Amino acid sequence: MQIFVKTLTGKTITLEVEPSDTIENVKAKIQDKEGIPPDQQRLIFAGKQLEDGRTLSDYNIQKDSTLHLVLR
């Protein structure tokens, strides 16, 4: 499925993911596309910070959802 990741600069990254993918996995995909190390990434969805060990389906993230990427 496709999800979107919006950065603070207003750029939107499109990712191909599975509901069973972990947040860690998603961060690795963002690193592949953007070169941002996962340890600098914070992903936010519906006002919640997403934890590495959980999956997209744990957070009820569905296709065409938009996550927000904050760098630390």
Rank of each mutant, 00 (worst) to 15 (best):
R72G: 14
T22G: 06
Q41I: 10
K63E: 10
P38R: 04
I3E: 00
K48S: 08
E18K: 08
D64V: 02
R54E: 10
V70N: 04
E51D: 08
K63I: 11
R42Y: 14
T9D: 11
H68I: 03
E34P: 02
I36W: 13
G47P: 01
L8V: 15
K33Q: 13
Q2M: 15
T55S: 15
N25L: 14
L50H: 00
T9Y: 03
G47H: 15
T22V: 14
G10D: 04
A46I: 09
R54I: 07
S65R: 03
I30M: 06
K48M: 15
T14R: 04
K6V: 15
V26Q: 00
G53D: 05
L8K: 14
D52F: 09
I36S: 04
S57N: 10
D58S: 10
L15W: 01
D64P: 02
S57I: 15
S65F: 12
V26N: 00
E18A: 15
T66S: 06
D64F: 05
T14K: 14
F4T: 05
V17S: 06
L50V: 11
D32E: 10
K48L: 12
L67E: 01
G10H: 15
K63F: 14
S20K: 05
T7N: 08
T14F: 13
Q2I: 12
I36M: 09
R54K: 13
E18S: 15
Q31S: 14
R54M: 11
P37Y: 14
I36Q: 02
G35R: 08
H68P: 01
K11D: 13
D39G: 06
S20A: 10
D21E: 05
Q41P: 01
F45M: 09
Q2F: 13
I23V: 09
V17Q: 09
T22R: 08
P38K: 05
D32T: 08
S57H: 06
D52M: 15
I61W: 01
V26R: 00
V5A: 04
L56P: 01
Y59K: 01
T22L: 09
S65G: 06
P38Q: 15
E24N: 04
M1Y: 14
R72H: 14
D64E: 14
M1N: 06
Y59E: 07
T14L: 05
T66R: 03
R72K: 15
I23L: 11
L50N: 00
Q49N: 12
I44P: 00
D21N: 13
K63D: 03
H68D: 05
Q31F: 06
I44Q: 05
D58R: 03
D52I: 10
D39I: 10
Q49G: 13
V26G: 00
N25G: 13
Q40K: 10
P19K: 07
P37F: 14
S20Y: 12
V5I: 10
Q62S: 05
P37K: 12
D52P: 10
E34M: 14
D21L: 05
A46G: 14
R42P: 01
D39V: 13
G53S: 08
K48P: 01
V17I: 06
R42S: 07
R72A: 14
V5R: 00
P38F: 07
R54A: 10
T55E: 04
I61M: 05
I30H: 00
R54P: 15
K63Q: 07
L8F: 10
G53P: 10
N25R: 09
I3K: 00
V26K: 00
S57W: 08
K27D: 00
E51G: 04
Q31P: 02
V17K: 00
L50E: 00
A28H: 13
V17T: 12
I36Y: 13
R42L: 14
L71I: 11
K29N: 14
A28I: 15
K11G: 05
E51V: 06
T7E: 13
D39A: 04
Y59N: 04
Q31K: 07
I3F: 02
L71F: 10
P19M: 05
K29G: 08
S65N: 05
Q40Y: 09
L8W: 06
K48H: 11
K48D: 10
L56K: 00
Q49R: 08
N60L: 03
G47R: 02
P38L: 06
L67Y: 01
L56T: 03
Q31Y: 12
L67R: 01
K29Q: 12
N60R: 05
I36V: 07
P38A: 14
L15A: 02
R72F: 09
E24D: 12
L56W: 01
T7Y: 13
F45L: 07
A46L: 07
A28E: 08
K11A: 14
P38D: 13
Q41L: 11
I3W: 00
I30F: 02
P38H: 15
M1T: 10
P37W: 10
P37V: 12
V70Q: 04
M1P: 02
R54F: 14
T12Q: 05
L8P: 14
I61P: 01
E34I: 11
D39Q: 13
A28K: 05
L67D: 01
D32W: 12
E18Y: 10
F45E: 02
M1V: 11
K11Y: 14
T14G: 06
R72T: 15
D21V: 04
K11Q: 03
D21H: 08
R54Y: 11
S20Q: 15
N60A: 11
D21G: 07
G47D: 09
K29W: 08
D58M: 07
Q2T: 11
I3R: 00
D64L: 05
N60E: 06
Q40D: 07
T12I: 07
K48F: 09
Q49F: 10
L43A: 01
I30Y: 05
S57Y: 13
T66A: 09
L69A: 02
A28S: 08
E51K: 05
E34Y: 06
Q40P: 02
Y59Q: 02
D64Q: 03
K6M: 15
Q41F: 08
D64Y: 05
K33Y: 09
T14I: 07
G47S: 06
I13K: 02
S20R: 02
K33W: 03
T55H: 12
K63Y: 06
N25D: 15
D32L: 05
L15E: 01
E34R: 06
K6L: 09
Q2V: 11
R72S: 12
F4H: 05
F45W: 15
R72P: 03
T66H: 15
I13F: 15
R72D: 08
S65K: 03
F45R: 04
L50Q: 01
E51R: 06
V26A: 04
K11M: 10
L56E: 00
Q62W: 10
I3T: 01
T7L: 15
Q49D: 15
V26Y: 00
N60F: 13
T12W: 04
I44H: 06
R72E: 08
T12V: 15
I3P: 00
S20L: 08
N25W: 12
P37D: 15
T7G: 10
S20I: 11
V17E: 01
L43E: 00
E34A: 11
Y59P: 00
T9A: 09
L15I: 07
E18L: 15
D52H: 14
H68Q: 04
R42Q: 08
V5Y: 02
K29V: 13
N60Y: 11
T9K: 13
E24L: 05
I44F: 14
I30L: 10
Y59D: 02
N60G: 10
E18M: 06
L56V: 15
